[in-house]
Design a protein around this nucleic acid. Structure first.
Lengths: 211, 211
DNA sequence: GGTTAAACGTGATAAAAATCTCATAACGCC
DNA sequence: GGCGTTATGAGATTTTTATCACGTTTAACC
């Protein structure tokens, strides 16, 4: 059973947990397994088996000798620790290509996230629908967040305006920002920012391609 | 001057170099600086000044006491090491939302990457234009790669078909894959894969939001 | 039931990454 | 030109992350 260990989990661990979870979900979908061993997971995901056991240990999972771990229990523990079962609502700021792509991606729901509103500055976009959400004017942003108690903002705007928008949503009560903008944001210490910079990937690609 | 050090640079270093480069490019755009100190960069990007100097040292940059580093020289060295000045062509596989977003992003050119063709399975999309490229049938994929000597494939297809597509493009000569699919790909050792999994970000977001 | 093989849990170890400390060098000022 | 200030560069240290090694547990098999 997942016991609540108060020690904060590190980012690398969270990401690995996510990968275990995804693999378990889809592999059980293909062929339901009752149990799984750390070696199987390690093999499939190209990590060390010890790593898997350590990570599982960190979220309170214990396996059985000779058998391994119960798949459904592992999934449950990860869902619990990562908070996938608690629904939370996010607003999407910026209805450009990337914003639309994110809004259209319907896989978020299974991780608890629901995108409930989309905002953009472009008058031509306002009123149009993006993945079921009517695009609203930026003026509506702050009131909306206040009213619906939104805690997550997903940012896909041009870099120039991102800091200003962040200040606004933070002052409205947002506690986490998923930043797809190539900008380092300044926020109060109680606000969490996750940066997602695709262009970082280019550094590695270009480097390996040119070598 | 950027001297060619044969030691392979690690991923973290490459990514930081990219961040330095981006910041330097845009900050010189705002207000041209002739020189910059490691402390200034560190301050702006929230890293340790020593780290900056170490990274610079790794690409052969030397600074001057009391002055710092010459901006244009730093930029040049990073461009050189990361290979931004060598143009390379990539094909985009999958013209969905994310694919369109990537194709439309015109920032890649300044890092050397040009997306020269787009492929999709969906008959309704074939022939339509995505960011200036006519979407082609998947059947044309392999011949195209062969003919134009393409070395990079950007993958934004559904997870189920990604491995099969990878096998095809690799057999056609592709040497690097930028994978936006939530799948671990198997490739020969001489092919480089960079995985870009947005859903990993969700693990951290959900965790922090729920805590 | 006892034996064996397979998998776990964990403390020790190694590797990698980040940070600290400080001697050295260069510019600006008098 | 000498002196103080400031930034670099490199070695030492710490922290984090990953891997190894091994004793323990548990199901399967005779």
């Amino acid at each position: 059973m997942a016991k609540d260990d108060s020690a904060r989990l590190r980012r690398v661990v969270l990401e690995r947990l996510m990968r275990y979870y995804r693999w378990l979900s889809e592999s059980t979908f293909r062929k339901p397994l009752r149990t799984v061993t750390s070696a199987q997971i390690a093999e499939a995901l190209d990590v060390d088996p010890t790593q898997v056991r350590k990570d599982f240990g960190a979220v309170g999972l214990v396996g059985m000798g000779r058998v391994g771990f119960e798949v459904c229990e592992v999934c449950r523990a990860i869902r619990y620790v990562l908070g996938f079962d608690q629904r939370y609502e996010g607003v999407l700021i910026g209805a450009g290509h990337l914003g639309s792509a994110l809004a259209a991606y319907n896989g978020f729901a299974s991780y608890g996230l629901e995108i409930v509103a989309v905002f953009d500055n472009d008058k031509r976009k306002i009123g149009s629908k993006v993945a079921g959400c009517a695009v609203q004017s930026m003026r509506a942003l702050k009131p909306y967040i206040r009213k619906h108690n939104i805690r997550l903002a997903i940012l896909t705007t041009p870099a120039e305006v991102s800091q200003e928008l962040v200040d606004r949503v933070v002052s409205a009560g947002v506690k986490a920002i998923w930043n797809f903008t190539p900008t380092r944001l300044t926020v109060p210490p109680d606000v969490f920012v996750r940066n997602e910079h695709i262009s970082l990937g280019l550094s590695e690609i270009a480097y390996h391609l040119v070598k």
